[in-house]
Simulated scan of single mutants.
Amino acid sequence: MEKLAKIIAYTKQQLQTDLTGHGFDHAQRVATLSHKIAKAEKAPVDEIVLLASAYLHDTIDDKVVADVDTACRELQQFLLEIGLSAQQQEEILFIINNMSFSKELTGKVSLPLAGKIVQDADRLEALGAMGILRTAYFGGGHQHPLHDPAIKPITFTDKTQYRKGSTVINHFYEKLFLLPEKMNTQTAYREALRRQKFMESFLAEFYQEWQPENIDLTELE
């Protein structure tokens, strides 16, 4: 518990100024979801590896930190200082370096079971009400248009193109609605489908509000 407390404190410090939707609150939810999925699946995983990966997964992400190499070195030193075994350190770093959606654009990496669960939990955070808000928040912060019917969704093939993005609404089709079929566990898959249905209902309402019935100018005096 002492090691986990230090991991939580480190995460909070690293992510306390995040304005991309990948802050400490996100890390907490990913950790909670990871724990719930592992319990539901009766997964034989190292709890420290599971929760450390969940809490720390965005502390070295290029969406969040300006210097990824420095962030990686600092995290490696931290894991060593708190007394994790070499195997635990290696597995945690492998998971958080290979679990992202953008990483899969250049080839899917086979994650250990703990990594698959954390990956599922992180992807659930991109769905449902939380996913809608985080998508809008991130898109607005990166000057992505909210919606433009003339801009069609893109099938991304590389990380650079993916990072540029297109529109907030297109992101639902470019990534978010692809996630349920990418889930590693049945527990996460079921929850992903539930969240996707909510998002589909939201989009139906959005399109209705985006394009209201035009004003009949002939009725105006």
Rank of each mutant, 00 (worst) to 15 (best):
110 S>G: 07
89 Q>F: 00
219 E>M: 06
181 E>P: 03
211 Q>P: 04
152 K>T: 15
211 Q>V: 12
115 G>M: 02
151 I>M: 07
179 L>D: 01
7 I>Q: 05
102 S>V: 09
190 R>G: 02
103 K>M: 10
75 L>A: 04
125 E>C: 13
7 I>P: 00
105 L>Y: 08
46 D>Y: 07
152 K>W: 10
199 M>W: 04
48 I>G: 08
71 A>F: 08
142 H>D: 08
209 E>N: 08
169 I>C: 03
87 Q>L: 10
64 V>A: 04
200 E>T: 06
44 P>T: 10
53 S>A: 11
179 L>M: 09
140 G>S: 10
43 A>M: 09
213 E>L: 12
103 K>L: 08
93 L>N: 06
33 L>V: 13
212 P>H: 10
26 H>K: 04
182 K>Y: 05
22 H>W: 06
38 A>C: 10
115 G>S: 02
179 L>N: 05
187 T>W: 01
166 S>F: 07
114 A>K: 07
23 G>M: 05
183 M>C: 06
71 A>C: 09
94 F>I: 04
103 K>P: 00
176 L>G: 01
172 F>I: 06
177 F>H: 06
109 V>S: 02
191 E>Y: 13
50 L>I: 08
140 G>C: 11
33 L>K: 13
75 L>R: 09
43 A>L: 12
89 Q>T: 04
80 L>D: 14
100 S>I: 00
184 N>E: 08
39 K>L: 15
212 P>I: 13
153 P>R: 08
216 D>W: 10
134 R>I: 10
183 M>R: 01
13 Q>Y: 09
134 R>W: 01
114 A>W: 00
158 D>M: 01
40 A>W: 00
167 T>I: 05
154 I>H: 09
25 D>S: 14
131 G>P: 07
37 I>R: 14
57 H>V: 04
96 I>V: 06
52 A>D: 09
66 A>E: 14
146 L>Q: 07
34 S>E: 02
26 H>F: 01
13 Q>T: 09
7 I>G: 04
159 K>P: 00
221 E>Q: 15
180 P>C: 02
116 K>H: 00
79 L>N: 03
172 F>A: 04
114 A>N: 10
153 P>E: 03
70 T>S: 11
19 L>Q: 13
105 L>V: 05
29 R>T: 15
30 V>C: 08
155 T>P: 01
48 I>V: 15
192 A>W: 09
69 D>N: 14
155 T>Q: 13
48 I>C: 10
173 Y>R: 13
86 A>E: 14
88 Q>C: 04
92 I>H: 06
94 F>D: 01
